[in-house]
Write a protein that binds this DNA or RNA. Structure first.
Lengths: 212, 212
DNA sequence: ACAGGACCTGGACACTTGTCCAAGACATTT
DNA sequence: AAATGTCTTGGACAAGTGTCCAGGTCCTGT
């Protein structure tokens, strides 16, 4: 029996090469796009490889299994979005804010996400939420994300002088989540620019005024 | 050439027999459960048949294709939920309502849906919404459903004396949708009985008070 | 130049899937 | 009881899937 060299397959952890890192990232990007465009079950080794423009076996080289590929893709997506949230939160700071500017910021934030480019990320996020309803591993990924949105939302409500920032923060997050889902599902935007701002202003006013 | 008899396969429309109707309904029930428990792609001919306790070929006999099976299942689910909504709406009538009773009704409505039994229907609904973001056929099914929820929601806001029932109605629906999704995704209920009622009361107060 | 490792990939395997068929079981009408 | 149309189902098929392997290529350090 020849001395068995350390098995070359299925490394996927402990990489060294920069090329490898890059290709791995490309595969994850392709997987995220696929999740948004086709749903989680649209993610197959062959589809991901084709979308990334690489041969089929690559995905098996960089990921131990399809589950790991999907998991890593969702984790990566969450990481990015959390970073975006953190940046916004940073930009907001602790300054007291006007109702109008907050409304405008929110509307812009939402409209930016309804962009074709943003759609993918949103769809992938909702996919993740449904996944979380079923699999605890996904719940873990979602946890940090949720903290990010809650934090940003609380900050916004605090800057508006809301009495109970926790409750109203959660409500704001949920309302926007529901709004975005509605925008997604109905295809055409049911709430245009001015009307959307009206709705958001009403929501903010309501949440700010409410006493627990 | 023998005279070809009318092809016996793929009827799926134009049934006569009552047995057939019953089995078809059982298959649809099984499919709906599967959608809730495993997602839309958990629906396979064999899985549906197994869940319904019938041989595998049955599903192909009653449905022209897997797509038709899924479509019919989603349609059936929507039909049922719309009927539930209509009944609620009926019960509400046009009476002026107390903030407390509306809060209580809403909370009960939500808590009823977080039941294991209700979870399946909720999950299936969100699955449908994501499907609608991708396929126009699903959008059609969702349309009637959305009208039902909006109608009920507007009625509730009107009975509370809200100034703009359309806007606040939509917001109420979206907020509750977001809340339910959060409940689903986080597994454990993050908003218990009393706290949930607090949040809902705040939301209703806010929406009622807001001036457009 | 060369060795060693990481990277890369064409091809193969077992398995699941959607769909179909042909033959039988059953009910109802004649 | 015979006929007729529906229901029922075991089995088969091609297509697609996850995963693996054996051998290749490329880069980096010496």
């Amino acid at each position: 029996m020849a001395a068995q060299p350390s098995p070359p397959r299925a490394l996927s952890r402990g990489r060294r090469d920069a090329r490898g890192e890059r290709r791995r990232a490309e595969l994850l990007d392709a997987a995220i796009d696929l999740i948004g465009a086709q749903g989680i079950d649209g993610v197959t080794h062959r589809a991901v490889a084709a979308a990334a423009g690489v041969p089929a076996a690559s995905t098996s080289y960089y990921f131990r299994s399809k589950d790991e590929l999907i998991h890593e893709a969702l984790r990566t997506l969450a990481e990015r979005e959390i970073e975006r949230l953190r940046a916004r939160r940073e930009a907001l700071g602790d300054a007291v804010a006007d109702l109008e500017e907050t409304t405008e910021a929110l509307a812009a934030w939402i409209e930016e996400q309804v962009t074709p480019a943003g759609r993918v990320a949103m769809l992938a996020q909702y996919q993740l939420q449904l996944e979380a309803a079923r699999r605890p591993e996904a719940r873990e990924i979602l946890q940090a994300w949720k903290e990010g949105t809650d934090d940003l939302s609380e900050t916004a409500m605090r800057s508006l002088g809301a009495p109970d920032v926790r409750t109203s923060g959660i409500l704001l997050v949920c309302a926007i989540d529901g709004l975005r889902l509605r925008l997604l599902a109905s295809g055409h935007a049911p709430l245009q620019g001015a009307e959307l701002r009206g709705v958001l202003r009403a929501l903010l006013v309501g949440l700010t005024a409410a006493q627990p």
